[in-house]
């Protein structure tokens, strides 16, 4: 039987109060073992869907901004700015983690 799995958008922040989220339960997809606790999300999961997509594409383009401008259809300086903004966001997330 064909099972249709609904893919939901992964939330980055609480839809009620916009605070950061953490993982409280993990379960094995095979034996359904459940682990409960307070697990922090990796930095990449704190980026929004668009930023995650940019990061993956940047990786796939071997870190070439020239290639990225071809993929995204934007000028080189614009792609450079997008990367700079992403770097700033990750730095901010890291500084929050250290605190």
């Amino acid at each position: 039987m064909l099972q249709i799995i609904e893919v939901k958008v992964f939330p980055n922040s609480c839809p009620a109060c916009s605070s950061d989220l953490h993982v409280s339960e993990l379960s094995c997809s095979k034996c359904e073992t459940k682990i409960q606790g307070q697990f922090a999300l990796p930095d990449i999961m704190n980026l929004n869907a668009e930023e995650q997509k940019f990061l993956i594409e940047f990786l796939m383009a071997s870190g070439s901004l020239k290639e990225m401008s071809k993929i995204l259809g934007f000028s080189y300086p614009k792609v450079r700015n997008m990367l700079d903004e992403l770097i700033q966001k990750v730095q901010k997330l890291k500084s929050v983690d250290h605190e």
Binding site: K66, S69, K70, G73, F74, S75, Y76
Partner: peptide, 11 residues
């Protein structure tokens, strides 16, 4: 919007 849209040979 050439400063946003154009790159490489086109530019």
């Amino acid at each position: 919007r050439f400063f946003e849209r154009l790159y490489g040979k086109k530019l």
